[in-house]
Nucleic acid binder design. Sequence first.
DNA 1: ACGCGATATATTTTT
DNA 2: TATATCGCGT
Length: 816
Amino acid sequence: MNWADDDDPYEGAASLSQRAMAGAMQARAAPYLEKLNPQQRQAVETLDGPVLMLAGAGTGKTSALTARIAHLIHTGRARPNEVLAVTFTNKAAREMKERVGRHLGGAIEGMPWLGTFHSVCVKLLRRHAELVGLKSNFTILDTDDQIRLLKQLIVAANMDEKRWPARQLAGLIDGWKNKALTPEKVSGRETAAFDNRGSELYAAYQARLKTLNAVDFGDLLLHMVTIFQTQPDVLAQYQRWFRYILVDEYQDTNVAQYLWLRLLAQGHKNICCVGDDDQSIYGWRGAEVGNILKFEKDFPGAAVIRLEQNYRSTEHILSAASGLITANEGRLGKELWTEAEGGEKVRLIGHWDGEEEARWIGEEVEAIQRGTRGNPPISLNSQAILVRASHQMRAFEDRFLTIGLPYRVIGGPRFYERLEIRDAMAYFRLVTSPDDDLAFERIINTPKRGLGDKAQQRIQVAARENGLSLLDGARMLVAEGALSGKAAGQLRLFVENVARWHEEVVQASPATAVTRAEDDELLIEPAEDGVAPANDLSHVRLAERILEESGYVEMWQNDKTPEAPGRLENLKELVKALEQFDNLQGFLEHVALIMDNDKAETEEKVSIMTLHAAKGLEFPVVFLPGWEDGLFPSQRSMDESGLKGLEEERRLAYVGITRAEELCTISFAGNRRVYGQWQSQMPSRFIDELPPAHIDVLTPPGLYGGGMNGGGFGGSSAMEDRVSRADVYNSPGWRRLQNAQSRGVSQPREARHMVIDAKGESDYEIGDRVFHKKFGYGEVMGSEGDKLVVEFDKAGEKRLLSSFVVPAADADDVPF
DNA sequence: ACGCGATATATTTTT
DNA sequence: TATATCGCGT
């Protein structure tokens, strides 16, 4: 269907004249237009119809996006609440809100429909929950709840939960939800998943969620897609309402998000998607680069606007990144350029092993900080180390601790994912909704109340037989005096406490039930996300008392482990966060989606983070360690996704380099300990792909200079005998690079053998003899998912990734 | 009910 | 190597 041919009742004369008027006033009344380059300006002013904004790294994407929103509002094209703008992270949403506000002189009310996909969907789903069999006060389960629930279902289905782990099922279900597949729609070879019972368990899981009046993250989108697909009147209402739609990081959208957007955009067809196919690095969690690649097909008549002027990096850095990414196929294609001339080339250096790499980088960071490298001093805050996998961080943390270099790890476990926070949240959940069985299960014996498996089973039985919630089941057992001794008293106390707290919650917030308003009212008057300042802080005191009286705080006070004090700190922080909300209920409704803990740190520190976490950030100085084949590109990526995986790894490398503003240093180590075993490493194939004209190869410390000839290297550990130190510098990649460097020419990359082909199928056949460094020799019996089933002569049957074995004939090549 | 030793297992992460 | 989970013994 061609959208451009549809007639559109909402594109009438009024808006035309409005547009003319707006055009007249722009010149003097729109300060947000002034600093834009011509392409950005085009992206801001092309308001009608679909627009794809291809925004390369550092090209001022957010400026253009926020100016566009400001422009829509400023020119009267739409009121703030008629603009739907979605991002992936709360951070991005927050930043966008701020900047739109700034463009418009801060004079606008908040935009209710600017938020993450998930937070917008929650808002919508609360209004239409009954259409998918939920109540509007449904709870949002976190991953932990999800896993526990699935585990129960797996056990109930008489499956061996060891062989069929809940985690794996959770992954499958998430994947299906990302593809907008409801249980009935799971088809084809997917049906074979999880011992042929995947879709069956998926259906059971969805049914269970419904009875719990709960959803998981994936459901938020899936349910809304279902509603839009089955309720044309509901869809039509929103199609009419959202006059303009904007999408950030479009290359990261999954199928469900894509469908959701396409359905909504069919009204006014004013959808503007911003993204960069070269920065698509989330394929493994369901993102479809295809969405951005086929945008013009999906939205006929789309204007494609390229932002190619880079304001971030120097020429060499930009060229190095551009050169690397050209190795990918099927790109939309962009040519980034910059006015900044010269600058330092991207530096490349090899090291003996991971520890030495960390040592060298530590010294570099300090030298750059002091300015002893002939540069002006650059603060630690301006320097970052970006790694492929978080376990690589360790070497740096160890080293930086010993030399006293302050560092900060970005990423890591989120605040609300921490044990103590989830426990506390479970208390609050149970107190506000006594039917929340998952919350009950989580805390009934935390702290220890002597209510173990046996007692809990009795509660389960009592509840199920009488159709009660677990809390009511427990209450019944107490009333009957069915339990004996210590357990009875403890359970009674628990039940009474919860009842008492619940009373207080009800008293504290009498009028906060969700008001069911007529559709259009709610559209016009939605509440701001949890920023309403509370004047009565009784719920905060109640929360404190819950944690005190339940014995939960005491539990951690008595805990002798080193992390206990930190946990108590976190609990305090949690209670403090409550102040931002009017009541416990309101807090719980939002916390699952919008709570994050990036508090402003003031101290000077060098940052350590994964490449994924670095997307969207920039630093004057960037170190990219660990560029070794198997580590980066990651072997697992290539095994699981073949060429597609390799290309995503390459985009990750591209993201890494383009984070740097002035100085970018890539490094690799010849030897690295992997799972406790020393392994010799080959430099990454990406190193071969860097354009030599923009690379400066540094002499490895002590290798060619310094009068060392082997003896003093790497100490005297036994490992020295096991690994040939010549490996790295004699490797094809390294030699090619040296040669190319001296001639200033790039060399074609040698084809490499990949164990797994592009379809992700294993090259091994049943009956093949293989060798594993721990299990020894064995025979391939078959495959299961992405794993190989191998019957080892000594170790028995194992399931493992094919990358962990080699053909038996090559056993000699396995390093010990 | 709980704590300890055996055992398996090993990216990337947001909501 | 390091961690997380599990089953068993007390």
